[in-house]
Design a protein around this nucleic acid. Sequence first.
DNA 1: ACCTGAACACCGTTCAAGT
DNA 2: ACCTGAACACCGTTCAAGT
Lengths: 200, 200
Amino acid sequence: MGDTRAPGQRAGLTRDAILRCARDVLSEQGIDGLTMRSVARRLGVAPNSLYSHVAGKDTLVDDLLDDVLGEVAEPRTTEPAAGLRQIMTSTYEVLLRHPDLVPLYLARQGSRGGNAQRLGEIMLDLLDAAGIAGPEAQEARRVLIVYTIGFAAMTTGSTSDAATSLLSRDVLAANFTTGLDWLLEGILATSDNQLPPHSL
Amino acid sequence: MGDTRAPGQRAGLTRDAILRCARDVLSEQGIDGLTMRSVARRLGVAPNSLYSHVAGKDTLVDDLLDDVLGEVAEPRTTEPAAGLRQIMTSTYEVLLRHPDLVPLYLARQGSRGGNAQRLGEIMLDLLDAAGIAGPEAQEARRVLIVYTIGFAAMTTGSTSDAATSLLSRDVLAANFTTGLDWLLEGILATSDNQLPPHSL
DNA sequence: ACCTGAACACCGTTCAAGT
DNA sequence: ACCTGAACACCGTTCAAGT
């Protein structure tokens, strides 16, 4: 299948094409089916060709996860509570749109890419505007991220169960919002009193 | 290293010995270092010998995770709120005692083994005593499990960061308890009013 | 710069033995 | 029943080419 092209012939590979293909393979074959070789096979290319555009499998997956975070909408307000609610809700919705990726986010506890950093700084800015900074802010951010990914995993995972399918997407989304508001309440309360920080 | 034993010579392998060895390999080599072959090597045995005692790698990891859940203490009361708080707190403490396993629990969203089932039924009994049953109970249980594993992941993960190390284990544990109480409050409130179930 | 063939050092797992 | 050697069908990655 790869013999149609001699060494030196261009295949028109692109970092974006590889990422898109990896996403297709993931949705069709699952996590275990996502390999360098399966991606290369689907692109009609030798396995090692990918290394001209991607450092390796780990960074490919990292890039995959971070690319999707580009879909997250930035908050339309600088008011801390509303802004944090908007950005986390948007993240939750994006994750639901890519159920195959959720387990990967879980395993890596988020992403370290450019989009993740951008969103993370927006979160820190919002927390700072609420008077929360330093290690407390970092912890609050991690709580919100873990909560969001965890809830997304709960929503997307094991929906094959007959009983849980009775709970509609809408009900789960409402539950997410309710819990999120509780978290925000607790986090933002730390800036208004003298109690030891209990950011969850 | 395996030539000291001819085919047919017993090596005294045990399912428990394999599990214990796998845990040692995991803590020393990390997740990527945990392979059938590395476990066998450490036991001074051929790789395929393990298959006389374990079905395969997936079930080995499953067994590994479920075994640890045997350390979780059963609640000392049948009062729903207190009982659920006890069982989740004990689970959280057990997970902190085995930081290497936490990412694996995350990826598999818990465990399906005997200990997990036993704990899961205790949780359902406690919820039932609070008047919560059916799909609402299953969702509440999943919320509590995801929250606990997620928080354990947050506590154990990325503690190499200088800023976060300022937050002591005790502070994080207190945060876990605070958030847990919020969840329990919300979950148990669903049995006392007519509002649509918002189990988080 | 981009792609190839070939190879290396691994995997998990199976199969046909041996005692 | 328990363990072995050998093998199969894979991995990710590297290296020396070719254009």
